[in-house]
Every structure is written in structure tokens, then in C-alpha cells.
Amino acid sequence: MFTIGEFARLGRVSVRMLRHYDGIGLLPPAAVDPFTGYRYYRADQLRRLNRVIALKELGLTLEQVRAVVDDAVDVGELRGMLRLRRAELAARVAADTARLAGIEARLRMIETEGRMTTEDVVLKEIAPVRVAELTAVAAGYDAPDISPVIQPLYPELFRRLANAHVPPAGPTIARYEPTGDGDAVVVHAGVTVAVDPSAARDVAVVDLPAVPAAATVVHHGSMDEVDRSMQVLARWIEENGYRADGYAREVYLDYCPDEPEKGVTELQIAVSRR
């Protein structure tokens, strides 16, 4: 048999961890010297130790680990536990990936701050437009909050329009409005259509009114990096004595869901004189 130190080295764990597992009855030693209290382990106990460590690394609690290694959980239950853990990890990876993209976009925006120009901003009137749209609520107006909410809306919108035999008549348009509940915003994912709004469909058909004056700029690239173009608009609005009225409307001139870095989007912010 092996001393606790030897067994810890063989199992690549700490002596402290083995003592803890013994204390909670998860992995008691094979023998304990009645005079010295020294713990001794058999080589075949490494199999149980390895299973414990593997299950812990999957994110199971020690109680769940105990049930599995003691065969108190059948294969179906174990499969369900692991699938749940897989879904949790996938959601965390997706959230971290979106957060990382946001950080990188912020860094690029900071790096280009000194070279940004307002020369490409155009003040113009926006004509009224009819759109078919779906809506959802995002936790905030930041790109990491908006992107995962708006992206699934467009495939579903196009699917419903195809089923209703309603073809798009112009570009896709995204717009936003406050919910009155903290930072949350209502996300409207729409596309220009030329249909009777009273016809029964499973999408909303809305007439967006004309905007007498809007500061506009064309953004090239992913919407995850839209902040740099928004900064251009903000500077132009401030320098020219205007104030922004509401959130920016996004008109996707070249919608590239599979290659967002190739997208072309016109940002439109309604403005009025101070």
C-alpha cells in the first residue's frame, strides 16, 4: 500500500485534498494505522480518485460526484447532468466571446480616436417607410447586449415573410426604443415591405414616419464595432449645435449575416437644434 503522500503524487492531487475526501467519506483510505493515524491507500483506489477528479472538472458538485462514483446515478441521469453542464459551459463561452469582441472593438475605437473625422456625416431628411418587423427586449444598448437579441430575429422574420409570400421591398432596418425599465431597450428588427398593413400576418407591419432632420453616417464592418461610427456622429452633433432625439436607426445597405465584417450600414439619428 501507499502512504498518503505517495498516493497523492501518483494521483497528482494534494495531500490536503485526500484528507478532505476522507473527511467527507468520498475516498476513505484502505487502512489507517491505529497508533500513528497514518493513512494508507491501495493502487486500485486510483481508479475512484481519477473518476472523482474527472467529474469535478466537469463542474459536478461533490454530492453529485459521490452519487456517480457510488453508482447511485444511472446512465440516463448522468447523461442529463453532463448535458446540462455542457449547455452551461457553452453559454459561458458564448458570453465571454461576445465580451472579448466588445473589448477588442473598444480598443480599436480608442486607437483610432485621434484620426476620426466628421466629414462623412450627412444631414438629411428621411422619408417615411413601411416595414415588417419582429421585436424583442435587450438588457442594454451596448453591442454585446444587442447582437445576441437581434441576430435571431432576422432569420425568423424572413421565414415568416416567405411563408406569407411577402417579398422585401428594400433594405432591412433596425430601430430601438426605451422600455422604461432601467437600461433595457426594445429591439425592432424590420425589413422594408410594400404590403397592406391591415392584412393578417404573424409579423407587425408598421409605418415609420418621416424624420425632418437626421445626422447620418455610413458604417463599414461588423456592428460589434459600430461604436467608432457612433462617436463620429456624436462629435458632429455636438460641434454643429444639435441634440440627438432618441436612439440611432440602422439601415443595412449590405446585410452580411455570415460575414459581418463586410456589412455596410447607414446610421441615422434624428436631431434638432438646441
Rank of each mutant, 00 (worst) to 15 (best):
R92L: 13
V52S: 00
P168G: 06
E104N: 13
V211Q: 08
L46W: 03
A270V: 08
P168M: 12
Y176L: 10
A162M: 02
T36Y: 04
D183F: 05
L62C: 06
P128S: 10
I173G: 03
L233K: 08
L123V: 15
R99Y: 03
L27M: 09
S14L: 01
G23H: 12
R39V: 05
L10V: 01
T97C: 02
H220T: 14
D207S: 12
G140L: 12
R243G: 04
V187D: 09
P144D: 02
V193F: 06
G182E: 11
G140C: 09
V32Y: 01
Q268V: 07
Q64G: 14
R108H: 13
R160E: 02
D245W: 03
V211T: 14
V52Q: 04
R48A: 10
F35D: 09
V166K: 11
L62P: 04
G182N: 11
L89K: 06
L267I: 12
L62F: 06
P155L: 12
A87S: 13
R85K: 14
N163A: 15
D33S: 01
R273E: 14
P212Y: 08
A189L: 09
Y21N: 06
R249T: 13
R47G: 00
T36Q: 02
G11A: 03
R66P: 05
A213K: 12
V193Q: 08
L161G: 07
A91N: 09
G80H: 05
E250C: 12
P155K: 11
V68R: 13
T3P: 04
A164N: 07
R243Y: 05
T216H: 07
D202S: 11
V68P: 10
P28H: 02
T118D: 04
E177N: 01
V13Q: 00
A91S: 13
R228I: 15
A210M: 08
A91M: 07
Q151W: 05
K262H: 14
